[in-house]
Design a protein around this nucleic acid. Structure first.
Lengths: 217, 217
DNA sequence: ATATAATTTTAGACAAAGCTAAAAAATAAA
DNA sequence: TTTATTTTTTAGCTTTGTCTAAAATTATAT
């Protein structure tokens, strides 16, 4: 159907699209894809010919409905494989991304529907991100960044924004995990750092941490 | 490490090598790879430069020890994934090959060692073929073709040579499966067809069938 | 043993996806 | 509103793996 490269571009545009309703710029896409702007222009033209994106010179690129559906299916596969790796193969949440990047491109409808069943139709991946269903539907959680909470507020950790191995290992080390209850004991307005209560311990965390943790109140 | 294409060539040479101790011919490899002889020559030169095969112009190609080990690891991955698909995802044995062709190229040591553990270190794939261990060791079963048995002899079905969907579906339809006991009730010397006892039924099968079923006596 | 046939290799071309360097367009600054 | 800067596109080249057509080699058959 689509080449490896085409699929990766669609996924990248999808992820960049989320953050702003404007078109995705060539440079942003080049950065995300770890490639050069000229290569992006070439590929974007190709995707445009295939009606997967809407593209006007110098105006950035948008996913078409077909492109969005394709991207959603890749995201679905990526996240299902992540669940598989963590739940069945004892991977930790900081190890799954790389492998899932490869597994997401395996082409078999049956494989994914059976995997979904085998995993008992999970709704979220190990980082708390929602898994689209076969039709591309998923509910974006009503979540907010920990940094938005005020002193005294509390909620449940439902996701992370930064999924880098370094950040996830930091969380593991400090016993910060999905599903834990976090309460803001104190917030330092000067630098945004917080003193939080998590489980039976309290901990001081920097802004780098608070802007990368999603909380459901 | 190696490209998709390189891996597939190594695997193809490995499979063709098994059948004759002579070098694998360019044409045979082209046939196996569904490509042209000229393309094969190019690739074989490349593999030779990388010391994965031994190649002399017009003399066919042989796997080097490094090439053999690489091929064995690909075969290992292919067969482990086949077990996974059949045992965990309810695939039937005629559906697994295509998908395993893709899965076998995923690059992660940990993925394969964990999968092996998850499947409880299977020794054979769903077609009865042995699964090499992490070091590339596997025991070739002492098996023979059903066609080699004489009237009155019996044994256990331990594998199939032809793994095409058509053949496997024929076997399923006639309730011929791995592990079943087969006895040769009668053998027609003229065309090699046999009357066999399998389970509580007897069945007449053609040579096309008897030369594609492996029996352990 | 020589002619014919089959196999294999070489030479040159092509598509995909990337790159560099230069030109063009858009944006920001003076 | 010009000028300067940044962004984007174009043009042309590279690599990987393929192809076709022609040449070279090996095998087969008379």
């Amino acid at each position: 159907m689509f080449s490896l490269s085409e699929e990766n571009y669609l996924k990248a545009i999808f992820h960049l699209q989320k953050h702003s309703k404007a078109g995705v710029s060539t440079n942003a896409l080049a950065e995300e894809m770890q490639t050069k702007a000229s290569s992006v222009t070439d590929m974007v033209k190709k995707l445009s010919d295939k009606k997967l994106v809407v593209y006007k010179k110098y105006q950035g690129v948008y996913l078409s409905e077909a492109g969005r559906q394709t991207a959603l299916q890749i995201v679905r596969k990526h996240r299902l494989w992540e669940v598989f790796l963590v739940e069945k193969l004892d991977f930790s949440w900081d190890e799954v991304h790389e492998v899932a990047e490869e597994l997401e491109h395996i082409k078999s409808e049956k494989l994914i529907s059976e995997l979904d069943k085998f995993l008992d139709y999970p709704k979220r991946d190990p980082h708390g991100d929602p898994i689209p269903d076969a039709k591309g539907n998923f509910q974006a959680a009503n979540k907010t960044l920990l940094s938005n909470l005020s002193k005294g507020e509390k909620g449940t950790l439902v996701g992370v924004k930064d999924t880098s191995s370094e950040f996830l290992k930091y969380l593991d080390k400090n016993d910060i995990a999905l599903g834990k209850t976090i309460e803001v004991l104190d917030k330092e307005e000067f630098d945004g750092s917080m003193l939080i209560q998590i489980g039976d311990r309290s901990l001081r965390v920097s802004t780098m941490v608070t802007v990368n943790i999603y909380i459901k109140i």
